[in-house]
Design a protein around this nucleic acid. Structure first.
Length: 480
RNA sequence: CGGGCCGUGGCGCAGCCUGGCUAGCGCGCUUGCUUGGGGUGCAAGAGGUCCCGGGUUCAAAUCCCGGCGGCCCGACCA
């Protein structure tokens, strides 16, 4: 087992992850087979917590969960020209079933706009059927050339929301509402600050009018697209003949949206907060929030300590680690690796003084707390840790965001992004939303991440490539 | 599709160049004792088609030929 694993700060996450989490048995959230993940206990429990946070918000916004087929007739993909062009290279196709060559192959869903468009056309006839607000929790397959644990696996779990509206304005409102939901979960639940923004035309979803995204910064300064929300316009409505009769009695195509987040969020979570000792989980996403490790030497101590430990664990909701044959030290390391926010230590000394030792995972501080106060202090400590994690991540984002006023400056900042030089940066520069400009940025192995919805800088300026006026700075960065 | 690396108990590896006794080490696992405020220590034990096929040889994990599989780096992407 590696004693000093590679830090996620400034290092390649995949390498750190493999060393620390997989081989080092630190958090055992997952392993990978042919680019597909087996998500293990701790990792899946985190996903379940995230699912609940998201699902509650979707339902509050009026969406209902449905489930659509895994296999999509290949012809469906071809109905929207841009869509099929974008997804063709990464499709897994089923050509044989039941021992026979199929007349028409199926594709394993890479996303479900097409099959949902097919059903929307059956379900929607009147303006009274709108808006139609559905969500699906599902697995999808995209045969990418390169996989990275959690961030880009061949198969992944996600949620995809699909809605149909009577007007473009209403659809756009929905697109931005769900982007806000993602930002809220990222920031309030994951303690991961994000920038809400519009993707450039060259980075938008295949088949969308416009795509919006939340962009986060990992500890090494690389950007991670953590969630997307698409304004599909009437593209899929026209492709799948999703028409409705409006209040004026005329036929019109619906305006659609789609939005999704995936198990990539778990990768983002790990890369946002974890340290050399292993996972650090924000309390709101910690499957186990506090563990109580009892310490005793002799049999009579054991009885007294365990009795008190059981009582305190019950009062506070902490998990009692009463495994025999494991030293307290071994237990401390065990839970530290797994990112448990608070570890409580209770031994004979504490019994005598009516105290208990409370240790925070993120900053490592130990605190003596009167046993009687623990039930009240523990939630406060968890809240503070949640907030501190966010604040630290926010500060890191600020510290690594820089302005650039020429293409040369952008290049100088992004060239040789390494840990020694402080890792990656978000470079804010005025950039025209033009595929030719995106291409220029790609020469530095970076991309235009987004054009922020809220301008926190100096407003309008001239494009550093074309010189044309643009109304705000865009985020340029190297990304996962 | 380019560039690099690797297939040896559950996991991580050494051994291969220079062929040779019973294939070794760490972790994990089992049993017992011991220990316990940051990975206790000791003892005993279970566990192997050395990726596959062929060749060379008295003898192959090791050398040769052919296959298969995996990982990492780049191009594609949530």
């Amino acid at each position: 087992m590696p004693e000093s694993p590679i830090t996620p700060r400034g290092q390649d996450f995949a390498a750190w992850y493999q060393d620390v989490v997989l081989q080092g048995d630190l958090a055992e959230p997952a392993e990978v087979v042919k680019g597909c993940m087996v998500i293990k206990a701790n990792g899946y429990a985190i996903w379940e917590l995230l699912q609940r946070e998201l699902d509650d918000r979707f339902k509050a916004a009026g969406h209902q969960n449905l489930y659509f087929p895994l296999l999509i007739p290949q012809s469906f993909l071809h109905k929207e020209a841009e869509h099929v062009e974008g997804f063709s290279p990464e499709l897994a196709v089923v050509t044989i079933a039941g021992g026979k060559q199929l007349e028409e192959p199926y594709v394993i869903r890479p996303t479900s706009e097409t099959i949902i468009g097919h059903f929307f056309s059956k379900w929607i006839q009147s303006w009274r059927d709108l808006p139609m607000l559905v969500n699906q929790w599902a697995n999808i397959i995209r045969w990418e050339l390169r996989t990275r644990m959690f961030l880009r696996t061949t198969e992944f779990l996600w949620q995809e929301g699909h809605t149909a509206h009577a007007t473009h304005a209403e659809a756009l409102e929905e697109v931005l509402r769900m982007l806000d939901v993602y930002a809220e979960v990222a920031e309030d639940v994951m303690a991961m600050p994000v920038i809400k923004g519009m993707k450039t035309l060259s980075e938008k979803f295949a088949g969308a009018l416009r795509s919006y995204a939340i962009e986060a910064m990992m500890q090494n300064g690389l950007a991670l697209q953590a969630g997307t929300s698409h304004d599909l316009g009437q593209n899929f409505g026209k492709a799948f003949d999703v028409r409705f009769q409006n209040k004026e009695g005329q036929l019109d195509y619906v305006w659609q949206t789609s939005w999704g987040v995936s198990t990539r969020l778990i990768g983002g979570l790990v890369m946002s907060h974890s340290d050399d000792k292993g996972l650090v989980l924000p309390p709101k996403l910690a499957p186990v929030k506090a563990v109580l490790v009892p310490i005793y030497r002799k049999d009579d101590e054991r009885g007294r300590v365990l009795e008190a430990a059981h009582r305190i664990a019950k009062q506070t909701g902490a998990k009692l680690d009463d495994r025999e044959g494991q030293s307290p030290g071994a237990k401390f390391f065990h839970w530290e690796r797994r990112g448990v926010p608070v570890v409580l230590e209770l031994g004979p000394r504490d019994l005598a003084s009516n105290n208990i030792v409370m240790k925070r995972r993120d900053i490592g501080t130990k605190e003596m707390v009167p046993q009687a106060e623990l039930a009240a202090r523990l939630p406060d400590t968890l809240d503070r840790m949640q907030k501190d994690l966010y604040d630290r991540a926010k500060q890191r984002l600020k510290a690594n965001t820089v302005l650039a006023n020429s293409i040369g400056e952008v290049e100088a900042i992004l060239r040789d992004v390494t840990a020694e030089k402080g890792g990656g940066k978000f470079v804010m520069a005025h950039m025209k939303d033009d595929p030719a400009c995106d291409l220029r940025i790609k020469e530095f192995k970076a991309t235009v991440r987004c054009i922020p919805l809220v301008d926190e800088y100096d407003g309008a300026g001239k494009c550093i490539i074309t010189g044309e006026p643009v109304d705000r700075r865009a985020v340029i960065a190297k990304a996962y």
